[in-house]
Design a binder for these strands. Structure first.
Lengths: 222, 222
DNA sequence: CTTAATAAAATTGGATCCAATCGACAATCA
DNA sequence: TGATTGTCGATTGGATCCAATTTTATTAAG
């Protein structure tokens, strides 16, 4: 368990132990530190987090509802497996939700929003660490959607953007670092700045479908 | 608490008490038996379900992840409020997800699927009970999406269809019983039977947006 | 009479303990 | 030899108990 060091450090920031355990576990799963199929023994986790089994159980329940772990009665929790079809599932959801969020948000984007998005794009060009790159990518997308004024929709998008991060490494391997959609990101930002919702939405759809196809190709190859 | 009678009856069907509590609470919230804003005291629920507080807590955690209750540390759980903006949020998600699911599913629909959908439509014409009507409506929609081959997408659609049921009574009040989209349902089914994905998707989008506007109008009026 | 401080009650968060269930391995029988 | 059954260990599900926090009631001061 190599995330043991993360544990002691972040501890006092949280109000409740359950929230602490939940956040660390989610991050570990989404980043790939906990691979798909890993069984999550309650007692083991409780010892690692230095809490009792109860906050672990509640955290696992919430992660189950977020489709990050599979629960079987009296069998326990297992990190959900990643697969080509699971990736296709997540990307189909993204392809449906994100253009909708963008269309709602775009008319209300401010100059500061666009500047922030541009800044994030620039950071992405020089960021070597993949996990941080995934974070920057998420934030870039979310900045563009944030003005949609639909908190549930945004929360869903955020959740599936994070889930897509589990496949980022495959995306990398399939398409290579520089091909990772920076052109599309720039074009998307340009269309958004011009206020062209139709064009922006088209680019975004293509962007997501391209990523999905890259991951599919990777799985097909191996 | 008028769902106390539901409790003892369904008890032995469930493998775990947590699943039992979770399902009954979700049904109660979605059907409106538990109104928005209702505080959910753990001990009270535990007594009503005749279990300890722990399965109640785990169930509430999962309902929180499903956005059916709001949790505040040391304050407890409250049934999430319904509102015009919340309805708009849910319907924006539906409008994004369901046409996508339909397009994926439509080419794989079988004659039996379409017959089942038609049967559900016929049942809806004569069903007086609103809660059953909501159930029939959900099943009609889901039959059309079920062949999409994207379990996560379908699960999301199912969740938000159920959430929309919380607003069904408003939809009723605003548009009246017969105007509740049976024309659109029939047209949707016809387009699906003809294999016309574009037309079916257009009708579905209109259908959802019409419902959303009806609910919005209801909230605006009162 | 209002407001601030404080003490008591109610409620949730967390820990420990016990019971129920599942998996593996061994023993028995066909 | 193979299948079935039974027992034991491991692990989770559930109950009870204690601690921490919030809220409410009370009291005192302005």
């Amino acid at each position: 368990m190599e995330f043991a060091d993360l544990i002691a450090r972040g501890r006092p920031r949280y109000r409740t132990a359950t929230a602490f355990v939940e956040d660390v576990l989610r991050e570990a799963i989404l980043s790939g530190a906990l691979a798909g199929g890993t069984p999550l023994r309650q007692e083991e986790l409780a010892a690692a987090f230095d809490v009792s089994r109860m906050p672990v159980r509640e955290a696992l329940r919430q992660l189950e509802a977020q489709a990050l772990v599979d629960f079987a009665p009296h069998k326990g929790a297992v990190v959900t497996e990643i697969s080509a079809s699971d990736a296709a599932d997540h990307y189909a959801i993204r392809a449906a939700l994100e253009p909708a969020a963008l269309r709602l948000s775009l008319p209300h984007l401010t100059a500061e929003d666009l500047a922030r998005a541009e800044g994030l794009l620039a950071e992405m060009d020089t960021e070597p660490d993949m996990s941080r790159l995934g974070d920057l990518n998420r934030r870039f997308h979310l900045v563009l959607y944030a003005r949609a004024g639909r908190p549930r929709l945004i929360a869903l998008v955020e959740q599936h953007l994070a889930a897509a991060d589990r496949y980022l490494r495959f995306h990398f391997a399939a398409l290579g670092r520089d091909k990772m959609g920076q052109h599309e990101h720039a074009a998307l930002l340009a269309a958004a700045s011009a206020g062209d919702a139709g064009e922006a939405s088209r680019i975004l759809t293509t962007h997501i479908e391209t990523a999905a196809r890259g991951i599919e190709a990777f799985f097909a190859a191996r």
